[in-house]
Design a binder for these strands. Structure first.
Lengths: 211, 211, 211, 211
DNA sequence: GATGAATGAGTCTTCATTCAT
DNA sequence: GATGAATGAAGACTCATTCAT
């Protein structure tokens, strides 16, 4: 059993190493720079060896992105304290998302500029996997909205589209930063977005930042 | 003069034909499917002939995109009646944008999923050309906002970031449609977005669709 | 007749212009940089027009080289005073050749590094035309040698091979200069070569430069 | 070890095969006939395979030439018996050089007519590698000259330029042969050159061939 | 005569995937 | 299981020559 376990650990290590290398290349030079040669070299594995862990290049890339998406979502959710009120949670979520995206700015730059994986023409549908993360995040926002509305803390907006818009605006904000087109600091941008949401969801008179 | 004119017309025809072919390929199969061979074939021209009209593949693609971007902007602006009030104009702009983007859905699918041209690492900067269109459109929104605020029709929001958000939400809405992920009809989506904007900019009590 | 003459002048002008442009390109960038497009542009003639004056690219290049070869030979011969003694004439010839080659250093660099025209595989033999110039020059040297030998001014060497060697050494000297590999000044190099020839042809005791 | 050794042998075989194929093409049709396709076909390898052994076409060609240059130099030096007197050694060197160049006549034809590799405009300087061989050979001649002069066997000439001239004359002799322009047999040509050198370096009275 | 648009064969190079060892 | 050499299809770009105008 020890032997099995050892080989399992090795498997795991190799897999992680490949995914990590793939992400590094994507972050540094974009998807098209991901060649099996480069990944293998970065990961210290023989080129042919990649195929022992991933069916093909596409699987490798999708897995690499999926893993980081999952991790980023986890990081964001960590920043939300479920014991606080809906508005606070929303603020934590939005600024957390901006922060986390900023932390992975190099990778995000590619991911936001090159969303081809979301469509995945031709292929059966492994791309839908990536959409799940977006949906889960949107649902999180929506739950907060619904609670806020139920508890009369938020104005009674339609939660589904508003959740969608909030997410999109947050992503757009991060994208602008990551492209170097943002007019102000990360903190200021997050504050601006939150102020915008306050206008929308809360009383106009106490619309200022309440975080 | 007839001769000059005839050859000029031919030149023009070839150029249009190449740009059109390029766009068709982009729309159908994405940027990476644009090969000089394919474009030439589509345009009914010899491969080498493309280089009589465009310096290289990159120029061809940027020109093709630039032309359609310019045209779409023009189409959108046509739908805005400058003699109407700011809120009406904003509504016309937003739903016009969604409509026009919908009309070019195939091309837009690629354009929204593959924004690499916006960054264009390495190259001197011809990519910045494409950002101009976005900026011009955002400015249009901003002008409407400013007039509305000045005339006390809109709540006093900060026009620059709000213009940015409005544009981004509109684009996100169109993108969701174009990917086939939209939950409702184009008209309903536009209405939803407009209602959202009404919440933000206008009195809560008459926030309904006013178009 | 005026009209015929005028067109003849134009013909001549165009031809010269084309040959000159061709040489400029060869001098600056080598034979492979000679494209019909570039030549036409340099000469201010339409590309197709070249074919009115030269059968094809090869003819153009050979003619351009032939003309300059002829001119250089003429220039060299100008520097030789037929009224002087054989040794003086030989000195004038050798240093004249080095000087003239130096004057056309850019063109010579290509010509000496890229002698493919001399072989002209495949083609019937238009290349032999270029060899004529070399032969004529060698004959000039040989005539001087023969006179010097007849008049007991030179040691009795076999004039044919020695003429060949003298020419080759002179060319080698010029080539080394043109490649930037020469250890000393043009004048010093010429003197060195002449001293070498003096050793060979004249009494060892008065072997110094006598020019 | 068997495995390592076997693959190493294969590697070596492939490399040699590629270099040999390259040389064959150069010899038969000149540098410009060297296309990766042709080399691959000649070597019985897939086109892409070449890039496993050489970074690019230029490297392939330079390596092919370098190898043969090195080998020719070795062959020439083999023919020189270091235990003999300077004059004998010089004779062996010169006629050995002519012989060896004659043996590789087809390749030499291209190499002598197309010396572009020696300049290699644009590139960083890998071309200088090829000049080393020429320098080494010249130095060999020079050493013989110096010894002969020191031992009063040769007239006291300046060894550096004379070594240069001797080498150039030998090359010119070989070139003339290889182009089919030589007036007599290889042996006679070598004898002629040696006689010429005797005139220069030795007493005029016993200037005949002494080999 | 003159033009220059059009052709299309030819070239180097990259890279996902396979498979013998 | 692991390796990495080998494959071969694909793609951007060049340029001599032709020919309709």
């Amino acid at each position: 059993m020890a032997r099995i376990s050892r080989s399992a650990i090795l498997q795991d290590y190799r897999t992680r190493s490949l995914l990590e290398s793939t992400r590094k290349i994507i972050a540094a030079h974009g998807f098209d720079a991901v060649t099996m040669d480069r990944v293998a070299e970065q990961a210290g594995i023989a080129k042919g060896g990649i195929y022992l862990y991933f069916r093909n290049k596409h699987e490798l890339i999708v897995s690499a992105i999926e893993e980081i998406a999952s991790e980023m979502l986890r990081e964001i959710e960590t920043r939300v304290d479920p014991k606080t009120a809906p508005w606070q949670r929303l603020c934590q979520l939005v600024s957390g998302q901006i922060e986390v995206m900023e932390q992975h700015r190099d990778l995000l730059r590619t991911l936001l500029l090159d969303r081809r994986l979301l469509l995945d023409r031709a292929r059966g549908g492994p791309s839908r996997r990536l959409l799940k993360y977006r949906e889960r995040h949107e649902l999180h926002i929506r739950n907060i909205l619904e609670e806020g509305i139920r508890r009369k803390i938020f104005h009674p907006v339609d939660p589904a589209p508003v959740a969608f818009y909030i997410n999109e605006m947050t992503i757009s904000t991060a994208q602008r930063r990551v492209l170097g087109l943002a007019p102000s600091s990360q903190k200021a941008e997050a504050q601006g977005l939150i102020r915008f949401l306050a206008l929308l969801l809360r009383d106009r008179h106490n619309a200022g930042p309440k975080r």
